[in-house]
Amino acid sequence: MTFEEIKKILGSKTIGIAGCGGLGSNCAAALTRVGVGALVIADFDVIVESNLNRQYYFHDQIGMLKVFALKQNLLMINPHVKVHAFDIRLCISDIVEIFRGCDVIVEAFDKAEMKHMIIDAVHTHLPEKHLVMGIGMAGWGDNDIIHCRKSDKLIVCGDESNEVSDQNPPLAPRVGVVASMQANAVLEILLGKNPLSKSTYN
């Protein structure tokens, strides 16, 4: 498939991004660059300086709500992308309401409890949707343990072992790897498996 053909397919798709921190902001940027037509983004947080070690924001955006800063940054990449920004702390009913019209939902929350909530919400209320999760990306190195696996419409990207803590902070390289894997998984859902693929993973 040529990039023009890819862009034509992606241009009609809408992706939901739940959380606009390290995973969500970087995943949204990757999806915007390849030509996804619309993004629905949700977060309640404000940008602080410590976010800049991994999140897709800039120093002069400190103090802004993440959803509005992200919308600004995505529009600088592609002024034609439609961004629906929700400044909201998501609960189950919001997830169902906001992401109902999306082709795929990307989970990009920080807290394990929120990750649990969205799995529950999507499986119970939106069972036809693919949900792409990011689990385990703290620290540095260990490229070889970052992976992707799936069960039906649930796809998990990450190392599934490195939890964020003071001694194991999230940093741009590993967070970016997992965010890009999530974006890559979204493409495989939307475009189908690459016919030129050499992978035996299905």
Partner: peptide
């Protein structure tokens, strides 16, 4: 049966 056991941890 195909069982997925997913351990949720914080970070994102």
């Amino acid at each position: 049966d195909d069982v997925m056991v997913l351990h949720l941890i914080s970070g994102g």
